[in-house]
Write a protein that binds this DNA or RNA. Structure first.
Lengths: 342, 342
DNA sequence: CGAAAAAGTGTAAGCGTTTACAATTTTTAC
DNA sequence: GTAAAAATTGTAAACGCTTACACTTTTTCG
């Protein structure tokens, strides 16, 4: 049944015998509404199937009822998982999810981050997924009036959920070192330059720390910049094979890049762990099948957790709040792509 | 630089020396605006960096500036690809993308499809990705006033982009039959019941047609309902192995399900093509690596194409239009999981 | 019990657009 | 050159909500 005309707050006011103003307050659980009025309004609203018009609400200074998720790309496994988990939380809290993919493009990134006040007009909050931010951008975001939360970003002045990237990378690298490998390459995510707060910066740090603990240093030639994707890993590995000698072990910053590396290896008649040991981070559903050693992280949990924190902030606007960085556990999973160096 | 207060249409009117009304019309390229006025308005708007408030616009009867994408799930490879491609088109046309995942849940589905008039209030159009619709739901959608386009849905009264599912399935199945297999199982997507318009219905039909051409009939026990995901394929295959004899070949309706089947096989000490031949549909980036035979389809293209059609409709509201079903090409790719039956 | 304080409710003015419709200017046609 | 038609522009009323402020009712307390 499609109602000819959506019920307006006016209709609810008439049905409940109260003024529009009281209805508005009752509906938003503002103070100064008697229990009786509260009940009457709730009944009337329910009876009419009333839902506030987000446009009108927004225009009058209320909320938009939607939250944006900004991700470097929407296709990577990690982001698709996190986005869906967050979307679920948002939907259950009554928010629409506006998806904004940066498409791994600086131009798109600039456009999106450059119009925060425009964004603030269309959504109540933003969930950032691994978006590298400069200090200025952080300041702009804070000034935009948007509620903010993030996944995978350290040292930001808002709630963040992630894993201990440095530790995860350290664990992966240490695993390789423990197996006797000392000639290590890392497939690092792009965008590690600038005053970055990106995941891959920390992962690189963990890699370096593990090496240092074994009295080794990071060789710049073996820090390969690769897109965090199958294709990125494949290209990086292909290049590595073509232009340098293959190291004895490789730490890929995500499983998909490791998959790509595995492919490139096979294209050149090589394989893991025979010619090179490989470990990733993620525990992608294909990793088990491919025997990829990796550091597992809870992805959907991160998205859902951060989304919940954001919703909470939105629902208690005034509440004092101390931004926190929540780190979820990771676990090294040894499979078949890593083995002792002989 | 963050402007203290966003420029309103009022500001543009003053700067251009015209009335709000004329500005509004000029901005939306409506008729009855002199070239001179058009120019003045454009200049003033540009100078002020003016962008209409979507909330106000919407409230007054204009457009919302956003489009919803509704998908059965957002994590599956196919959907993630299509969503990102569509989002790109929408963003480039100035629309926000509202992502709505049905999470493969009937309850969510019901909620979303049951409040189309609510949705119509928040977005201008909807891009449906493989959403099974009843006749009533199609009627509701048509009545909602939303512009609609879809991917992977046949026989719908709006623009659709897809592949010839029946043909793709026929090609995959015929490949298996041509290899001498006659004992075939199919891993079919769920939700093929009811007055469905879903992809998998057509794929099942293609499967049946190929069998019929070889004077074989579809054995109900070998039509396995499986989620279109790695896990779905894995569960289905596990069950198949446990409760029946393994057929000599399997047609999986998507590559991810085939991956899952491959996993289950391995867990039971079996493998393709040794114990069973397997073919999928998609050409997922991992398929090449796993040697999976498949029928390749252009995924991002479908999303982008449909998104473009939707934008066109939105930009020419009045224009007469004949809904069309655009079918993109597919291609059988024979790899290593299929071979002649001995 | 009465005055002051507190709690609850209503009035009316926006918020920034779109859009009938009226008013004005320009063009057309005789 | 003028009346009628066409094109352009402006006025003002929505759209459905929030909120400052005024008003009324209830509670508190000496």
């Amino acid at each position: 049944m499609v109602r000819a005309h959506r019920a307006t707050i006016q209709d609810v006011a008439v049905l409940s015998g109260l003024s529009i103003c009281t209805v508005s307050r009752a509906l938003r659980n503002l103070p100064n509404v008697s229990e009786k009025a509260q009940r009457q309004v709730a009944d009337a609203a329910a009876k009419l199937g009333y839902k506030a018009s987000s446009a009108a609400s927004r225009l009058a200074g209320g909320s938009t009822g939607s939250i944006a998720i900004i991700a470097p790309t929407a296709t990577a496994w990690f982001f698709a998982q996190a986005v869906e988990a967050a979307e679920e939380v948002f939907a259950d809290s009554g928010y629409d999810t506006v998806l904004i993919s940066l498409r791994n493009k600086a131009s798109v990134r600039r456009k999106v981050l450059g119009d925060l006040s425009g964004l603030a007009q269309r959504v109540d909050g933003v969930l950032l997924l691994n978006v590298e931010l400069s200090d200025d951008e952080i300041a702009d975001l804070l000034a935009s009036g948007l509620a903010v939360a993030s996944v995978g970003m350290s040292k930001v002045p808002w709630d963040n959920v992630g894993i201990d990237d440095e530790h995860a990378a350290w664990a992966a690298t240490s695993h390789l070192l423990g197996l006797g490998h000392w000639d290590l390459a890392v497939l690092a995510g792009r965008e590690t330059r600038g005053n970055s707060v990106l995941t891959s910066g920390d992962r690189l740090k963990g890699f370096g720390r593990a090496l240092a603990e074994h009295h080794l240093t990071v060789h710049p030639d073996l820090v390969i910049s690769a897109d965090s994707s199958i294709d990125g890993g494949r290209r990086a590995m292909t290049e590595l094979i073509a232009h340098r000698s293959v190291p004895s072990a490789i730490f890929a910053e995500c499983d998909e890049a490791a998959f790509g590396a595995l492919m490139a290896l096979r294209e050149h008649g090589l394989s893991a762990p025979k010619n090179v040991s490989i470990i990733g981070i993620d525990d992608h559903p294909m990793s088990w099948f491919l025997g990829l050693s990796t550091v597992a992280q809870p992805v959907a949990d991160q998205g859902a957790f951060a989304a919940n924190l954001l919703c909470e902030r939105l629902q208690n606007p005034g509440a004092p709040h101390q931004a926190a960085n929540h780190l979820l556990d990771t676990k090294l999973i040894e499979r078949k792509t890593t083995r002792r160096k002989r």
